[in-house]
Computed example of a mutant assay.
Amino acid sequence: MSTFPDYYQILNIPKTATQDEIRQAYRKESLRTHPDRLANASPDEKRRATERFQAVADAYYVLSDPKRRKEYDSLHSSRSDRTGDPSSSGSFFSQFAGMFGGARPGAGAGAPQQERPDAEGVFADVFEELLRPEVERVAPWWSYFGAVCGAGLGFIVANVPGLLVGGYAGNRLGAVRDAKGKSVAAVFNQLGSTDKAAILRPSQRTRQ
């Protein structure tokens, strides 16, 4: 029989923690356990960090929502096998899927199951203000290219005034191309491990 994940213990908070305390605890633990901080880690260290990072995201997903937290607490108080071991969170969302609107626990193999939260997605949502300044440093090639092309066409059509208008319009169109379909999380995931580690390094911004 699997053990029951103690999400309060995983986030290192008391059961009486406020929503703000839950958020701050998630920020601290997710930064500490994010696998991309371990640029030179062994595969086993990466695996354990990833497991811990996912469990921290699971904990935040459950406890940050008042309804999910209430449903979780009803089970939490009745279980004697609670543990802060990150591996205990693995089966939670399939075993107790009915809590969050998924399939009934014990339903057949073809029944839909509540999916675990995407750890990187949770992280990006909470840390968007941290990640955005860094990922926006990605070179806006299409913005530059659009400005040059627009300026050239504008100059042909209307000399200097056309150059200015065309350059601005081309730059804006290029910026749309740069940003289209790319969330902060998506751009962050495309960065190299060194850049990710630098972004994730604790700073004053994360301690506020």
Rank of each mutant, 00 (worst) to 15 (best):
Ala103Val: 06
Leu164Cys: 09
Asn40Val: 03
Pro105Asn: 08
Gly170Leu: 05
Gln19Gly: 12
Val165Ser: 04
Gly146Ala: 06
Arg207Val: 05
Gly150Arg: 07
Arg23Tyr: 00
Ser78Met: 11
Ala25Ile: 05
Phe100Lys: 03
Ala59His: 03
Ala111Thr: 09
Ala139Pro: 11
Tyr8Thr: 12
Phe127Ile: 02
Glu129Thr: 15
Val122Pro: 04
Pro105Tyr: 01
Phe155Gly: 07
Ala158Ile: 00
Asp20Trp: 06
Phe127Lys: 00
Pro161Ser: 04
Ser88Ile: 04
Arg172Leu: 14
Ala103Cys: 14
Arg201Ser: 13
Phe123Glu: 05
Asn159Val: 02
Gln113Lys: 14
Tyr168Gln: 10
Thr33Gly: 00
Ala41Thr: 01
Glu21Ser: 10
Thr50Val: 08
Val176Leu: 14
Gln24His: 08
Gly106Val: 13
Cys149Glu: 01
Val165Leu: 13
Trp141Asn: 06
Ala185Asn: 09
Ala158Lys: 14
Ala49Gly: 07
Leu63Trp: 07
Ala55Gln: 13
Ile10Ser: 08
Phe53Val: 04
Gln204Asn: 13
Glu129Met: 11
Thr206His: 11
Ala111Glu: 15
Gln19Thr: 03
Asp73Gln: 08
Asp73Val: 00
Pro140Ser: 05
Ala198Cys: 01
Gly102Arg: 15
Ala25Asp: 00
Ala197Met: 05
Pro112Met: 10
Ala119Gly: 01
Arg201Cys: 05
Leu11Val: 06
Ala169Val: 13
Phe127Tyr: 12
Lys196Pro: 09
Thr83Lys: 12
Tyr72Pro: 00
Ala97Gln: 12
Ala25Arg: 07
Gly106Trp: 15
Val62Pro: 14
Ser91Glu: 10
Ala151Leu: 11
Thr3Ser: 14
Ala185Trp: 05
Leu153Tyr: 14
Arg68Lys: 15
Asp195Ser: 15
Pro133Phe: 04
Leu38Ser: 11
Arg207Tyr: 03
Arg201Pro: 02
Gln54Met: 01
Glu51Cys: 02
Asp44Lys: 08
Val165Tyr: 04
Asn171Ala: 14
Phe93Lys: 07
Phe123Ile: 05
His76Phe: 15
Glu128Phe: 02
Val126Thr: 06
Gly170Glu: 06
Gly150Glu: 03
Ala17Gln: 08
Asp178Tyr: 02
